[in-house]
Design a protein around this nucleic acid. Structure first.
Lengths: 257, 257
DNA sequence: CGACGGCTTGAGGTAAGTCAATCCACGTGG
DNA sequence: CCACGTGGATTGACTTACCTCAAGCCGTCG
């Protein structure tokens, strides 16, 4: 990572708390220490792996997935820069799912000992990291709502809008536009649909003037309408810093959502 | 909680590690200190609540849920004795979902300060609790697979079998039988189906001799067949203690699964 | 130029939803 | 002790959202 580049994990944690100089230095050390690159479509971690490094996505897009006995695939989460792939392996014995590189991906490898060290040395970072894993769970829960109670159109709109915000958090969106390097097949595996039906639904969203797709670039053309059809409630992303932490009761309204 | 009764949280954590006397005493103190009871169908925690106690289910069944603007409900997880309802509120500002009592529920209320205290005083319990939240996430991921890539029959079979194991962990199953006090409507809200279709699918599972339902009591009649149609792979429950933790390489085969 | 991966579109099929009636176990009050 | 009301389970008839199969298209890369 170049010196100029902002550590996307630091940037993400800023959503939750102010990261002080010591913590920032620690996070930068993690991101710089050891890096590795994966080609698009290759596995970063496979189901059953026993990992002793945590992977932090620096650039590119990755995805958690499971393969069913019949060969079908379900993508359970997308991982954007700033996301940690496998905090669980820190505790659990082996991966119960795999993670693959959707596009070319650059990761920092953080040895679990480094994280363990942090847990005792910085309670602020421990909390921040905890916040990160809790919001990851919240995103999983929202995905369950998507699959259980939203139809194709709502589900896609919800996913595309959520990704906008998650990219925005790490500074990878411009206005209402972001690069989302997925194929329609991957979108299908993430939304529990068929590639064919993803295609038709996207066309419908385009024809209705809600979104635009140019290559891998997504633009939300009509924010209000997209939030409306997605029934989007941003509370699950927990982008307001907890009021107990900030001295005053001022809630930030910096327009991320 | 009577003295004789085994703390279900302790019992659950035993899946992951051996709980020593000090930790056991701490957990029992938590469970005994302050308790509260909820009537069936009442809210234990509502969306938007700011909670400063963690709720530990002691008896009964609870469920995490979200309400959509159009009034539909999605149940994202069932909480059985030994499950913690809201570790997240420890960090996050407010609940992004609600939790309601499916049956009458008895909970222990644990003040967040008690938990914070534990985090600095017992690294073994900290790890065990971490394991617990990680497996909760794993269950959420499995639910996404259910919804995305399994049909009604597979989904119900999967849920019923998973619940058997989760009840078994806390000693609330007898052979292949357990009490699961849900209505078909709640089952529908959990599986993303219609009550009508839940009914038909259950009938089919019964007619095929896979399961039995007597009132609220579920029996898995044909374990092999149920695991087969559910494509059940227990790895996501992480019931093997991590090999790094146990001195020898012996894996337990006590037949929970 | 041809092959290939991914996108698009059409025609027809099916799992699951909707609407609605009936049934059944219960609890409760007259 | 029975009539009645109520919440939940059950079943039938019909509709629909999404799937399947299949063909064509389009850009790119060797």
């Amino acid at each position: 990572m170049s010196m100029a580049m902002i550590n996307p994990l630091t940037q993400k944690l800023e959503q939750f708390t102010t990261v002080d100089e010591a913590d920032r230095a620690r996070l930068d050390g993690w991101a710089r220490h050891r890096q590795k690159r994966w080609d698009a479509k290759s596995d970063i971690i496979s189901e059953g792996d026993h990992v002793d490094h945590i992977h932090l996505v620096l650039t590119g897009l990755a995805a958690r997935y499971k393969l069913l006995p019949n060969g079908e695939r379900q993508i359970m989460a997308f991982l954007v820069p700033g996301d940690l792939c496998d905090v669980e392996v820190f505790i659990l014995d082996e991966m119960d799912h795999g993670i693959f590189a959707v596009s070319d991906v650059q990761c920092a490898l953080i040895h679990k000992d480094k994280v363990e060290e942090m847990l005792t040395e910085s309670s602020s970072l421990t909390k921040a990291l905890w916040w990160s894993t809790m919001t990851d769970s919240a995103v999983l829960r929202e995905r369950i709502v998507d699959h259980g109670r939203r139809d194709a159109r709502e589900r896609l709109a919800h996913l595309l809008y959520e990704m906008l915000i998650r990219y925005r958090i790490v500074g990878l969106s411009k206005d209402e536009t972001y690069e989302f390097p997925v194929t329609q097949e991957e979108l299908a595996d993430a939304t529990g649909m068929t590639p064919v039906h993803v295609n038709r639904t996207l066309k419908q969203l385009r024809d209705d003037g809600l979104i635009e797709l140019k290559g891998k670039v997504v633009s939300i053309l009509d924010t209000a309408a997209v939030k409306e059809v997605a029934q989007f409630n941003p509370n699950y992303l927990h982008l307001q810093r907890p009021s107990a932490t900030s001295g005053d009761a001022v809630q930030r309204t910096d327009g991320l959502i």
